[in-house]
Amino acid sequence: MIDLIRDLSPGLATLLTNPQFAFIQLMNSISQGMNLFIIAAGLSLIFGVLKVINFAHGVFYMFGAYVMYSVSQEFGAPFWLGALAAAGALGLIALLIERTLFRQIYEAEHLMQLLLTFAIVLIMGDVAKIIWGTDQYSVSYPASMSGATDLGVTFYPTYRLMLCLIGPVILILLYWFAERTRWGRMTRAATQDREMLAALGVNVPVIYTSVFVIGSMLAGFGGALASPFSSPVPGMDATLIVDCFVIVIVGGLGSLWGSFVGALLYGLVFNFGSVIFPNAQDIFAFMLLLIVLLIRPWGLFGKPEAGGH
């Protein structure tokens, strides 16, 4: 039996016969998924409240990685300070963009908003080129996390383990914010009926701004965390943004848990898929998206569109 499987897919045979290998692939899936979750959560949050599909999210991620490089490698600041600086910088950029540009088009059609974010992609890509040039950079792991940790079953890179932990931490933080704070209740109300909220005297624009800033900070933070294993280079945003789209659509637009599960699924499908069918890695993500959309068009955790639309 196992010989037959080996003929069809050597990778699958290894997975079945070598539990240690299977375990490592599971860890690969989770750590990759968690890094993507941090970024995708921001995208999903922004969509949930502002109803804008933010194409510029990928560029924000790229800026996060670049800021991380400048702060940690050029100024020699500690790793975590770099990550915070990246999140902070993106928060500021987002504040500026929201106040000057986004605010003008909340009433416009989705299409126009999409195009606006596309314009930001074009411009910020050039801005990055002006600031950081066209070199490819490399960011070091934090000293304490450059090696591997013994998990009993196997050794696994410490930094990736940290990603596995930080993902759930961000999930819980966001969940707590959304469910337990006044801000969270306001944002949820804003997703449902902003006119009513405004009539009740709530400053809706401030809520919008804060959501956009926090979502973008997550992109910057995610970019900073990715920078040690995904070197900051021009164009690094192009593939990432599509991956994030897949994740948030699979999970359900605007759903926090959705992006968490979507990111995990993405990691699992990518890693196990690459082992089992090594020639088809380019299409796993899109197959996942297709299958989910065909069965449950509004995503795993999303709600069906209202009014038959």
Binding site: I53, H110, V242, F245, V246, I249, L253, N279, A280, D282, I283, F286, M287, L289, L290, L293, P297, W298, E305, H309
Partner: peptide, 22 residues
């Protein structure tokens, strides 16, 4: 409809791309 329509068309087109590539 709407964003889901857009994303499904995107997914199909990326499959076409993958086939042309592979």
């Amino acid at each position: 409809t709407d964003i889901y329509f857009a994303m499904l068309t995107l997914a199909f087109s990326m499959l076409v791309w993958a086939i042309a590539f592979k």
